[in-house]
Every structure is written in C-alpha cells, then in structure tokens.
Design a protein around this nucleic acid. Structure first.
Length: 273
DNA sequence: AGCCAGGAAGTCC
DNA sequence: GGACTTCATGGC
C-alpha cells in the first residue's frame, strides 16, 4: 500500500468528470474508497482530505498509476492562469480543482468515446461493462484476489459480428467498433504510431476511423494522448459557451492547456454545488 | 410518455 | 460546403 500527500487530486471529482467510466465508489473490507479499472489494471484507492492510500505495490504505483493520474503535474499553475475577471471559469475551476487529465490507454479511449456519442454517462458505463465482460480477459487483483475484467483487445472486437455485439446493447455504435477494430488489426491505422504524433497529426489520423468525428477525436487526444490543447466540444460545452461566452471561449489566453479548462467547465455543468 | 444523451454518417442540394 | 435526417437504447 502506498500512502501519499497530494494536491489538486480528488478521487470523487475524477470519478464523475466524464473522462473515465470504470472508476466507481466501492466498499472493501468495510472501508470506503474507489475502484479504478484501467486497461488490465485494477486499483482500490482511498482518500481523506489530501491523504491518499493506493492499495497496490510500490512497483505498480511507480510504473503505472503515478503516470495514469498524472501526479507529476502541477495543476494549481493551470488554475492560477485563469483570468480573475472571468467569474464563471474561476468558479468552475474551484469546484473541479481536484480533477486531473488522466493518461489512459489509447485503444480503450477510442472504443470508450465511440460508445459515448449520443449516449448518457450512466448508460456509457453499462455499455463498457458489457463489452469488458464479453470480450475482456478475466483477471484477479493482487491486493484482494477479486475478479474483474480487463478492457478487450482489438482482436476479439474485430472478430465479433454485429449480431454478437448486439448483446452488449451498444445500439448503432456496434458497427463503428467492429470496423474501427478491423482498421487497427489490419494495420490501416497504427496505435503505436499515434503515440508519437503531435496533436494535429493524431487528430487527422483518428478521423480516418469509422465513427470518429471531431469531438470524439478530441476526447481521445485529450484523455489518451494527453494533448492538452484539445478542446472537445459536446452538447454541454456548446451550451455553456453560448451562455457564458457569447463572443467565444478565449482559448488564445489559455493556449496549450485549453483541455484542462474544458474539463473544469464540463464538470461544473454536470454537478451541483 | 416523451425528451434527451460527451455525435457521426448518409443524403440531399 | 452547409442543412437535414437517421441511427439503438435506456435513463430520467
């Protein structure tokens, strides 16, 4: 178990920030915390104020979770750059000050945000749970020996038929996932290649995939490739900008980390004080 | 019951 | 290039 003092880190805020869908409140041995499943990893974590307990080995923490939670980055400096006259953004950042832009798996984000389109967050979780149970490897946690399912690899999803995927209740998105999985297994689009591209290159490459448009591509760039200049505009963000920024969001002031602010706004719009 | 959801592809002009 | 329609499913 790793105990750590953290700043600008809040499990509750991250779990409901809409960037990850396999993180949820959980009781373990009578203690409350959060279960986080990412790729084929699973972690139980607890938090009291700034003190966090990560129930994993030091090795797994250093090699995986430290990076996953982006713990090497100072988020307060992003918040300090916010225009103090911008009351809306100041309030949004205040409420979501414990959010981090997670460094998640590329393939997992591609599938996750294909599923996210024209869908609500509660149902997105169900859809992802379904495909993990059907197509992901069964795993056991080192900590407590509990069973969980890894996120499925491209191969089994590429091999699935539309009829089979239908049992996961993905709706019309099934065909997007099958065709995109085939684009990966065939080598038409190379996942490792995407990792070394800049934002514009990666975005263009992602747009080649069937079912991925500008918004989903930006989510993948932000949440998997950690391109903080990506600023995904969905229905909530569009409405918030129309309401609070009639002349457009002042992205030029925040060049290079617009994506962090986008998350504060998204979280602010989806939560109550 | 009916509207909506972290949109994108298809089909017009 | 823009506007308009269709696409499954279920949460609220």
């Amino acid at each position: 178990m790793i105990a750590l003092e953290t700043k600008n880190f809040n499990l509750k805020q991250i779990s409901s920030s809409g960037q990850c869908f396999r993180m949820r409140p959980k009781e373990e041995k009578g203690e409350s915390g959060y279960e986080i499943i990412a790729g084929d990893h699973c972690l139980f974590a607890q938090q009291e104020a700034d003190l966090c307990k990560f129930h994993c080995s030091g090795e797994e923490f250093e090699q995986f979770w430290y990076s996953y939670f982006d713990l090497g980055t100072d988020y307060e400096s992003y918040i300090e750059n916010i225009d103090p006259l911008d009351e809306y953004l100041t309030n949004a950042a205040h409420r979501g000050h414990g959010i981090r832009i997670l460094r998640q798996d590329l393939w997992e984000m591609i599938v996750t945000f294909l599923i996210s389109q024209q869908n609500n967050i509660v149902r997105i979780r169900h859809c992802i749970d379904n495909i993990c149970k059907c197509y992901g490897k069964e795993m056991k946690t080192a900590d407590s020996g509990e069973t969980y399912y890894a996120f499925p690899e491209p191969e089994p999803l590429a091999a699935a038929t539309d009829e089979e995927l239908k049992t996961c209740n993905l709706g019309y998105r099934s065909k997007y996932i099958i065709r995109t999985a085939n684009s990966i297994t065939s080598g038409e689009v190379n996942l490792d290649g995407l990792l070394s591209m800049d934002y514009q290159q990666a975005r263009t490459e992602l747009l080649k995939l069937y079912g991925i448009g500008e918004k989903v591509a930006d989510c993948i760039c932000l949440f998997a490739l950690h391109k903080l200049k990506a600023f995904p505009v969905d229905t909530h963000i569009r409405q918030a900008i129309e309401k609070h920024y009639p002349n457009g969001f002042p992205a030029e002031r925040y060049r290079g980390f617009e994506g962090v602010l986008q998350q504060y706004i998204f979280y602010y719009e989806l939560t109550d004080a």
